[in-house]
Design a protein around this nucleic acid. Structure first.
Length: 428
RNA sequence: GGAAAGUUGCCAGAGCGGACGAAUGGGACGGUCUCGAAAACCGUUGAGGCUUUGCGGUCUCCGAGGGUUCAAAUCCCUCACUUUCCGCCA
């Protein structure tokens, strides 16, 4: 949520920044108008309340003095004011709700550092490691899609997953299941130097989904357990961001770094028919997320660190990848700046987005009411939040299997995963 | 799922219609004393909105929401959570 005061005081700048997203600045003018109106009515309400409070004190005094007649006169006066107060207070509340509703739908301001652009095509590649999609770099035995490899080796059983749960659900078996687990374990182990491991709930309240910006705008993308008013999380970002909701952190505790492996659930409502084969787009998958709460001053350095950590994992798995600086028009709703890591996977001959590392400035923290207090300073400030996928299983699983397929059809297990493979060095 | 008790500031805990944003104790911070520290003593110590160049003014918040009243931490209703007991259970 953007700070209303910022809309009030820097209207043009906010409008211009939002304009860079390309999807219009819609209700911004309406917010400004309602806010103006609300402050006026609020002032009026507070004046009446002040008057009522004063009268009530006088009534108390008069009654103690035994002057019942005078007290009753004051009561009558106060009663009339009370009626007006109720009416005006109702208007304030109503406008307030309207403003909040509008604000919840307005996306975050892109960072000035985010490149210009309207579409994914305008994202800026800032780094490439390995051969990427150079056709000369890949052998025929690597040009087999993971669903074929998985079936051949008996490590991926999509048919039975569909029997249980329907299309776009998956099931790993044997060494395939081991690989899925090993990837998560590796991601957690490599970040345990600086991140606290958390195992949060995967089913959460509406308020928890609102805090990160997943609701109210994107309700169609999430699984909803209506009977209990709960939502299945699309990412561990959701519970981890609410961990500190409505709390005031100590500046000395910042940055606060958390990581969690959870199942992630996505309805993929808007992407029917795309990437339906194999593991590229699925309804449920495991992911290790790394997240930080920070002061504004710490944010840039942390953002770079999260990216470096996500990147080093991909590199350690021997995958070829590129890093994209997302343009303003392609940023997620809540993000001010995002770097994506895409792995090139030779079997499917595609760049796969495997990680998204974002800085949300104070957008989520304001929704979630997460503040911090500096030693000695008066009052509190809104914190910043950042997060990134350290490792999302299905696409990385696919890339590992396709990249490391040997001429004899077996899969070489990357060295960093060997500790989790009970002595095996290959999948066959 | 059933029953009982509870939810007040950083913590403990009082208050049970009017002088209560809230006693008291502890903690933390600052000061006096001291070569320094401890002890003692003094002081400060919640969050937020609107307004103001500033001093300040004003409103809201005692789990949440509603109600009664001139006036609610205090009375009434609903809900959530916590603890204990019973039931069920990986």
């Amino acid at each position: 949520m953007i700070d209303v005061r910022r809309i009030r005081t820097e209207y043009e700048a906010v409008r211009t920044a939002l304009g860079r997203r390309g999807d219009g600045t819609g209700e911004l003018a309406r917010v400004l108008e309602l806010d103006e109106q609300m402050r006026q009515v609020m002032q009026e309400r507070d004046d009446i309340r002040s008057h009522v409070n004063a009268l009530s004190k006088e009534v108390g005094q008069l009654r103690r003095d035994g002057d019942v007649a005078a007290a009753e006169a004051k009561q009558e006066e106060s009663r009339e004011l009370g009626e007006r107060e109720r009416a005006i207070a109702g208007v304030v509340d109503q406008i307030g709700e309207q403003v909040r509703e509008l604000l919840l739908h307005i996306p975050n301001l892109p960072s000035p550092d985010a490149p210009d652009g309207a579409h994914a095509d305008d994202n800026v590649e800032i780094k490439r490691v390995g051969p990427g999609d150079d056709p000369a770099a890949w052998a025929d035995h690597q040009r087999v899609p993971h669903w074929d490899i998985g079936t051949e080796l008996g490590i991926l059983d999509l048919e039975r997953a569909v029997k249980m749960s329907g299309a776009m659900f998956t099931m790993f078996r044997k060494q395939g299941a081991t690989l899925a687990r090993a990837l998560c374990q590796l991601a957690l182990d490599r970040n345990s130097d600086a991140f606290e491991e958390v195992r949060p709930p995967t089913v959460v309240l509406t308020e928890t989904m609102i805090s990160t910006g997943h609701l109210p705008k994107f309700a169609d993308d999430a699984y909803h357990l209506e009977r209990d008013g709960l939502w299945a999380i699309p990412t561990a970002e959701v519970p981890l961001t609410s961990l500190a909701r409505d709390e005031i952190l100590d500046e000395s505790d910042l940055p606060m770094r958390l990581m969690a492996q959870t199942a992630c659930f996505r309805r993929e409502a808007g992407s029917a028919g795309r990437d339906t084969r194999g593991l590229l787009r699925v309804h449920e998958f495991d992911k290790v997320e790394i997240l930080a709460y920070a002061t504004p001053a710490q944010a840039a350095e942390l953002h770079a660190d999260l990216l470096a950590r996500a990147e080093s994992l991909i590199a350690a798995l021997g995958l070829t990848y590129r890093v994209l600086d997302l343009c303003a028009g392609d940023l997620g709703n809540s993000s001010a700046r995002t770097f994506d890591i895409e792995v090139y996977s030779p079997g499917v001959d595609q760049w796969l987005e495997v990680s998204s590392v974002s800085w949300f400035s104070d957008y989520q923290a304001r929704r979630a009411n997460i503040r911090y207090r500096s030693a000695g300073a008066k009052g509190t400030e809104t914190a910043h939040t950042l997060n990134g996928s350290a490792l999302a299983v299905p696409r990385v699983w696919a890339a590992v299997v396709e990249t490391h397929r040997q001429p004899d059809g077996s899969i070489r297990i990357p060295d960093v995963l060997l500790p989790y493979f009970r002595g095996h060095t290959e999948i066959r």
